[in-house]
């Protein structure tokens, strides 16, 4: 069994999961909303990337800059038009709303891009020799950019004034308000940031994986498993769990086949829910 090779493949995959799940987790932290549409923002990001590169013949790095801005705008629109009104109501409302938004995004994407798979041949092709292994360039770049951005956002949360405001709204909204933090502003910015991270994840996976409008259902829901395992609301937890689950999925896929490999993520999630509901590094979120 090529343990080392699988381990590297798993970590590279985990980097993308980290970017995706950290965005989802940020949004959950400040809004207590589980965003079912997060994965579909990712799909929109991936498909827009394909259009930019193969349709408009622009270089790939243009997509890295433009697409996150686009999905951030899309996310902000969702937040301002719909979710803002539901954030403090019963959870079932916001869950249903994001579920409905997800359906709308998927079906509009099908209308725009068609239902088929789209690839990005020739972008970041080839491979690099790394630690005695041949690693596909597209995967390596995706991992490096994803990890860099994830860590950058972490730094932003830990060390800047606005980052502290986000964390305080996440941990104690009442106290944040008392201290003069505008919850609305924090929520809007966080939602846009989360959506941008989803979009960027979409850009980064477009060269490696075939993209289609259903990508969100396949990929995005893995982010749920990640944040449950890592602990809802915990940023480092999500990063650690993403790498762990990436490795687990690759090994599971090697042993039991692709389909069961992805199902394993959810089985792990269910076990964590039962044994340790607040997750590996969870902060014990009040529901």
């Amino acid at each position: 069994m090529p343990v080392f090779e699988l381990l590297i493949a798993g970590i590279l995959l985990g980097g993308l999961y980290a970017l995706m799940a950290c965005g989802l987790n940020l949004v959950f932290g400040v809004m207590r909303i589980i965003n079912f549409a997060h994965g579909d923002l990712l799909a929109v990001g991936a498909l827009t990337t394909v259009s930019i590169v193969t349709g408009l013949h622009l270089p790939f790095f243009v997509a890295i800059v433009v697409v996150p801005l686009l999905t951030a705008a899309l996310g902000l629109a969702m937040q301002v038009l719909v979710l803002r009104r539901l954030a403090d109501g019963p959870m079932i409302m916001s869950l249903l709303a994001t579920f409905a938004l997800s359906t709308i995004l998927v079906n509009l994407s099908i209308l725009i891009w068609g239902g088929g798979y789209r690839g990005l041949p020739g972008v970041l092709g080839g491979s690099v020799h790394l630690l005695g292994q041949d690693v596909a360039l597209s995967r390596l770049v995706a991992f490096l950019v994803a990890m860099a951005v994830t860590l950058l956002v972490w730094w932003f949360l830990q060390s800047t004034r606005f980052g502290r405001a986000i964390r305080s709204v996440s941990q104690a909204p009442e106290l944040a308000v008392i201290n003069g933090i505008s919850i609305d502003a924090v929520r809007n910015v966080t939602f846009a940031l989360g959506a941008a991270m989803a979009g960027l994840a979409g850009v980064l996976l477009a060269p490696t994986f075939a993209s289609d409008p259903q990508l969100g259902a396949r990929f995005g829901i893995k982010a749920f498993a990640v944040i449950i395992v890592g602990g809802m609301g915990s940023y480092p937890g999500a990063m650690a769990a993403a790498l762990l689950l990436g490795v687990l999925e690759v090994f599971g896929g090697y042993w039991f086949g692709q389909v069961i490999g992805s199902a394993m993520l959810f089985l792990v999630m269910l076990v964590v829910l039962l044994v340790r509901p607040r997750g590996l590094l969870g902060m014990g979120v009040r529901a």
Partner: peptide, 26 residues
């Protein structure tokens, strides 16, 4: 599953449906 509440129950059951779908495919 009923030992967990709120968002945890929702995501857990949502995941369960996806597990069943994967098994039907797999």
């Amino acid at each position: 599953m009923l030992r967990v509440k709120g968002p945890f129950f929702a995501i857990g059951m949502f995941g369960m449906a996806r597990v069943c779908e994967s098994f039907a495919l797999g």
